[in-house]
Design a protein around this nucleic acid. Structure first.
Length: 244
DNA sequence: AGACCTATCT
DNA sequence: AAGATAGGTC
């Protein structure tokens, strides 16, 4: 028997074909073998498809910024047609964008680039929503049968052997998406950098030496090198007048 | 290989 | 604009 997430029916809407390809690959890769992934590049097409095929999907992924109909508008309409978790995606993770997504009823927000872990835990949204609505498998609801049965089987399984799995009751702690955080050169950090450069001497200040002098825990030579490039560029522009 | 630099990408 | 990444040179 297939493990639970198999059979999860995913509808992906994004105007970028590469993203759609990635989503397809991810779904297959992450034990969603047998998953039905329907992809659309146009939100209005997707909307039509949903209204013609209600109860055919378990989760919807939608990009916020779409050419014709944007993600927010799509959500407003699609929620009247189908009641499934909707995840919004965008390159822009500004709080305004994210909050607007949540206000419109998105259950999650994925900041691009998409990460494996997001797909890994995607099915939890489906389970939580069904549980929160007390939805039990209806034998006459053939469209939902597969995934719901899968959930029931899964529950039975985890009851019989008390093996610890990922799905604990409704814990809200997601596995943090292990994305590499980018270094922010706060004024304090920049000051350390400047002090190091001063100490070494501008002419002799090179990434490795600067890094050694700074001795900041998780900073790498590449980080410093990149920052140094910007700093030099800045010095050139201000022509030595405003270097502090 | 490792460190540096420049150009390019996001 | 700020930081990351790539590619070339020594």
């Amino acid at each position: 028997m297939a493990k639970f997430p198999a059979g999860l029916r995913v509808l992906a809407v994004d105007n970028d074909p590469t993203i759609l390809t990635i989503i397809k690959e991810m779904c297959l890769q992450f034990h969603y073998h047998g998953a039905i992934v329907v992809t659309f590049y146009d939100a209005s097409l997707a909307l039509n498809h949903v209204s013609e095929n209600k109860d055919c999907f378990d989760v919807i992924l939608i990009e916020v910024h779409m050419p014709n109909m944007d993600g927010y508008e799509f959500i407003q309409h699609v929620r009247k047609e189908i009641n499934v978790p909707i995840i919004m995606m965008s390159l822009n993770g500004a709080t305004g964008v994210v909050m607007k997504a949540i206000e419109h009823g998105a259950c999650d927000f994925w900041i691009k680039p998409l990460h494996k872990n997001q797909f890994k835990i995607m099915w939890k949204h489906v389970v939580r929503k069904l549980w929160s609505e007390n939805k039990l498998p209806k034998k006459d609801d053939s469209k939902f049968t597969y995934s719901i049965n899968a959930i029931v089987r899964y529950q039975g399984k985890s009851n019989s052997n008390s093996k610890e799995t990922n799905v604990n009751e409704s814990n809200d702690c997601y596995e943090p998406p292990t994305k590499k955080p980018r270094v922010v050169w706060t004024p304090a950090l920049h000051n350390q950098f400047i002090n190091a450069v001063k100490q070494i001497g501008l002419e002799k200040a090179q990434p490795k030496r600067i890094l050694e002098v700074m001795k900041t825990p998780d900073l790498t030579r590449e980080h410093v090198a990149s920052h140094l490039q910007k700093y030099r560029f800045y010095l050139k522009g201000s022509n030595g007048v405003t270097l502090q």
